[in-house]
Design a protein around this nucleic acid. Structure first.
Lengths: 345, 345
DNA sequence: CTGAAAGCGCTTACAG
DNA sequence: CTGAAAGCGCTTACAG
């Protein structure tokens, strides 16, 4: 591989001049510049990034850590991050943790060893301490889909509490009074926040209409996990008419289990998803879901961290919050008794 | 940021000893080793990757260039790449080209500026020349889902010609004699190869059963594009009973259009997808599809390029080929006349 | 406007 | 077994 020294020799100038041709072309005499550029072109010279980074202390690399890239929500988010990074000539290292705290901290180390300038992370769980450690090393952080909670960092999130309330209110209005929450561990902040939203909106409901809430916690928020859990749950009796799922994949898995057990969706049981992934509309039973702007989330987060990297002194940490939106399709419907009541009145 | 010099001072040893503690612990006296390790631990020291790379001439970074990461096929592929890389302590930069040749070559430049050790690429189109240029710079290449065609490089692919023949044979056996090919441009090698497979298997079919093939080319192989094209096609008459789609997203889009026009799938028209993405089974009409081992494809490709990076002299370029598999679900069925014939005989 | 020199943080022969 | 020194390829003040 050609080095800057080879170029200098070939062009008959010094090292510094070649460097200037690359980084500060305006300080060179036009003729010298042209001469050097020609040689660079001919030799196909590309500056060694490692050396450059070592000197400059920056490398235009950011890391993105997500719990599950196969979840279309995170795929869309990653696309947003990538597009924003590409526009700013940054590059992103993708890290998929499979929701494992272990892998998450390993990736955190790998990324800091790579000296990335910033890390965009949707922490799998409460990993504030590990994050604080990374921040100490001078790596900038932005939290995605999650508030920064005490950390000095930017964050981009969706109002999860509002999302939870949106889901509950929808089912309540359809007459559902026995509702199953099919979701992940409450350690996951999004889950906790949505539950808060659900509880809060319960307070607005007259006592005689108050729905009863049951919870079923999943280890991993995947379709197959939801399917297995749901199959078991059904065998021990269906004492609910509505299900609020932690994401659309869970909803898809749950619906598969219900249909296999000949429980009709939405006639017997209504199911509401979360995220409104692309497929939600073409699903077996087109999914009612809470829509989150995943791409925009990623794009905004990347812009935030890049602007911080480019202008550390002028940068002020900020928190961007998007609002979720209810999208009604065919997986939710009024309960039978609610339909009857409507007929009477 | 702590440097190796700070650690040396704190531990009361020389630079070299700290470096040895990290890279060749076996040469140190156990006591010295322990002492240094303790200080490293306390200071949370992480060696600067840029400096390390500069010395070593390597950086354990590979790039992955795919045309559409939102397509679950490529998401799965990316996961395979990531997992293989993670296991080998490599890191991967994800590049999404949106099937744009422009973006592809820009990413190629960005990656070579970053001095990645290797690039895994599924070229959007014929970009052999740009690739050859990159290879000249000493960046190792592996072609994914696509043969290497003259390039000195490894490749990992699926037998697309066989996949095409699988699809045609399936529809033919179900009695379909008027088949629409709904796919991307023939510039895309996968598309061309499948068409070859289709043509080849036509030769095996008795003349009186020979299906008639129509083609409809899509600019972009997305669901919405397929939906639009299909809506138009239907309006100008449905002169086919079966559709072979370029991927599952296309199949999903086509089915949506058909249903909207009250054409039943599979009763009136059979649709066969390609890729067998996770979602295929939970689709509106569970999709018959040609399954490709996307994750394995990515995993194998990453292993190949990493082994080349680790052992350049011993490395021999190889070509790994996976076989596709027909997965029959509910979107294909015998034609009406075929059903009648079966009843008679 | 151009060149010589210092130094970014590390690794690795080489002396001792 | 440990330390001092050279050098990876680049950038950036600083002289000239």
């Amino acid at each position: 591989m050609a080095s800057i020294r080879d170029v200098a020799k070939a062009a008959g100038v010094s090292l510094g001049t070649v460097s200037n041709a690359i980084n500060r072309p305006e300080v060179l005499a036009p003729l010298t510049l042209r001469k050097v550029q020609k040689v660079i072109e001919e030799m196909g010279f590309v500056p060694n990034a490692s050396a450059r980074n070592l000197r400059a202390g920056r490398n235009r690399v950011i890391g993105l850590i997500v719990p599950d890239i196969s979840n279309p929500f995170f795929t869309a988010l990653a696309m947003g991050v990538n597009d924003a990074a590409f526009a700013a000539k940054y590059v992103v290292i993708l890290c998929n943790t499979d929701e494992s705290t272990d892998k998450e901290s390993q990736y955190l180390e790998v990324l800091s060893a790579q000296n990335v300038e910033g890390i965009l992370i949707t922490p799998a769980r409460e990993t504030i301490r590990a994050l604080a450690k990374v921040a100490e090393k001078g790596i900038r952080l932005a939290l995605v889909d999650r508030p920064a909670l005490g950390l000095q960092a930017c964050s981009v999130a969706v109002n999860d509490s509002y999302g939870g309330s949106l889901a509950l209110t929808h089912l309540h209005e359809l007459g559902h009074r026995k509702i199953l929450l099919l979701t992940g561990s409450e350690d996951i902040p999004q889950v906790a926040d949505r539950n808060t939203g659900i509880r809060d909106s319960m307070k607005e409901i007259p006592a005689n209409q108050l729905p009863q809430i049951m919870e079923l916690r999943l280890d991993s928020m995947s379709a197959s996990n939801a399917y297995d859990a749901m199959m078991k749950k059904i065998e021990s009796g269906v004492d609910f008419t509505g299900i609020i799922c932690g994401n659309d994949l869970i909803a898809l898995g749950a619906i598969r289990a219900l249909r296999e057990k000949n429980i009709a969706v939405p006639e017997d049981v209504s199911v509401i998803g979360y995220d409104d992934i692309d497929f939600a509309g073409s699903a077996n039973v087109p999914l009612t879901s809470i829509s989150q702007p995943a791409y925009e989330l990623g794009f905004a987060a990347a812009e935030l961290i890049i602007s911080e990297c480019e202008n550390p002194e002028r940068h002020v940490h900020q928190r961007i919050e998007f609002q979720p939106r209810l999208v009604v399709r065919s997986s939710t419907a009024p309960t039978k008794s609610h339909r009857a009541n409507l007929r009477i009145s």
